[in-house]
Design a protein around this nucleic acid. Structure first.
Lengths: 341, 341
DNA sequence: TTGTACGCGTTATCAT
DNA sequence: ATGATAACGCGTACAA
């Protein structure tokens, strides 16, 4: 392996000079600069980033933990989109990205802590904040830099990037109200996710605005899966007073709902309307095409990674919470206005 | 930051003793071992992995470059599945995973080389080998450990994990022949991907076996996209003698084909049969459900990462090429046997 | 069983 | 404009 010393020796200079050439230090003579540079390419020398990290006390690396449980709040497109956004930024800022996955939340927290305590990464990006998150307080008390993608629990000491879950859910449900629906069911995910709470709140908000009492029997919760969407919709349809519309907090859930609805011999949107969330590629393929909320996942990845890099480099304070707005994509699963008033 | 020296000082021993305790060296007295361990947890000491990497000359990290171009051979589910497989192994072997993405192939190669030359990673996993791959010879000549997911170009000096593309394509096309089809079109991807060449070969192999001349006008190539699937299928349907069946080398392409077929007022499978590749979640959602080839992506990730870790740890030689078999998932897009013979 | 001394490859400080 | 030296945090011969 060729090191900085080898280059120095062959160039007839000291290692520090070579180091300065690498850093493009201006108080080095153009002559030696040229000579050393040439030699570096000749020898195919590349600085050892490990050594550099040690002395700089920085790995120049960001950490990201993905949940790999099937019951994940994050369907595949979410993962790849957020990674695309994050790595676009890490790349352009010459940062590295270290990835880990975990089966459950406890392991996720362990992995995350290990990354920072063992100095493998300078900071971490957190996906999917929980209601009683134990990781976040830990990170805070140790002063480990991090940015949450999602809304951080109550503590407002966190930097975070989120989409407007409450607003988005409100818009989706309002859309159904405007179409003449009154009995609108909610297919929610696990309540430990803050994002589920937020979407639930947007749902209730719409009910309040339209002056309609919210029937608790219309609210179901399960995992972010097709199976649970199917199961819960069946429950809904078999109940005494079934809904005329369903709002699912994830497209996968909505697809499960489709299956149950079709199985019951009902038509979408004539008999029952459906709205999903996330704009999964599936949404524009399933028949009828699913009306859904599109959230700017890529942009959230960009924003979150930009934020933590700024944080690492300047220790500065910004608008610590960044909220990106989402968009209701209207397709064919809700039909147009019901009846006349 | 608490270092090994701090622990040593407070424990009244030398740093080397602490180091040995960490390594669980057996020639250290149980007494001091206990004492030091206790102190480590008390002080919440964690070894600095950067320093450890420097002296061990190993980052204990694997590198993975993802292509983030839209024209990628790898649709989203492929990415997440292979990452799941890889990280399951890196985790259990206490390795780290470093991720980078690139827009085009040149950048992909650069990123990859940087990772290894700058000692950020001990070895890399390569996705999607090209026909004239320039990265692979470079890695070989520098003795950088790597494993290819896919078939390496001619050079058989590579370790690789692949699925049986030729066999799988053959099986898919044979399925169509057995159903009574003769005019079977191929919707192929960019020919610079070896996997496309292999699937093409499987296609031709089936024709040879059934003693049927392969009409070149039935073979189209484009990108791995819905749009190109749509466009090429339209060309096919508008031609003088349109096919009665289509084999697409990716489900996304098949979905584009669906769109074109439906637009022409034709029915699947009655008028035209379709087979896809990859078993994308979309395949079991689109109507009619798509018959497709399922490849063991997760297992390939597991196999490839296991292979490179073995390689890094033992410098040993195994069955250097590992091929995993795939499976034809028969759904509703081909119907049952046409006509009687 | 434990401590000493050195080195991993780099950069920063202080000289010159 | 350049060089010598120390230090980053750790592991390991070698010595004791």
């Amino acid at each position: 392996m060729t090191t900085i010393k080898d280059v120095a020796k062959l160039a007839g200079v000291s290692p520090s000079t070579v180091s300065r050439v690498i850093a493009d230090n201006r108080r080095i003579s153009p002559a030696t600069k040229e000579r050393v540079k040439k030699l570096m390419t000749e020898l195919d020398y590349h600085p050892n980033m490990i050594a550099r990290s040690l002395i700089n006390r920085s790995s120049h690396t960001l950490g990201l933990i993905l949940s790999r449980s099937t019951d994940s709040a994050f369907s595949n497109p979410f993962f790849s989109e957020i990674i695309r956004g994050i790595s676009a930024i890490t790349q352009s800022h010459h940062y590295n990205l270290m990835l880990a996955t975990a089966e459950d939340y406890a392991e996720e927290a362990r992995q995350c802590l290990r990354m920072v305590t063992e100095k493998r990464v300078d900071g971490v990006l957190l996906l999917a904040s929980r209601v009683n998150d134990e990781l976040i307080p830990e990170l805070i008390s140790n002063n480990y830099p991090f940015v949450v993608v999602g809304r951080a629990p109550d503590l407002q000491k966190c930097y975070s990037v989120n989409n407007d879950n409450i607003q988005a859910a409100y818009t989706a449900v309002r859309h159904l109200f405007n179409l003449g629906h009154q009995k609108i069911a909610l297919l929610n995910g696990p309540e430990e996710y803050i994002l589920c709470q937020d979407r639930y709140e947007g749902y209730r908000f719409a009910f309040r605005e339209f002056g309609i009492e919210n029937d608790p029997s219309l609210v179901k919760k399960g995992s972010f899966s097709q199976d649970d969407g199917y199961r819960l919709t069946l429950e809904l349809l078999d109940s005494a007073s079934p809904p005329t519309a369903i709002f699912a907090v994830d497209d996968l859930i909505a697809i499960g709902a489709y299956k149950a609805i079709k199985e019951k011999g009902l038509r979408i949107p004539e008999d029952i309307a459906v709205v999903g969330f996330n704009d999964d590629p599936l949404a524009s393929v399933i028949e009828p095409n699913l009306t859904t909320v599109r959230i700017p996942i890529y942009k959230m990845g960009v924003a979150a990674s930009t934020m933590i890099i700024d944080l690492l480099q300047s220790h500065d304070i910004f608008p610590a919470q960044k909220i990106l707005s989402s968009e209701l994509i209207i397709r064919d699963s809700c039909g147009s206005k019901k009846k006349s008033l």
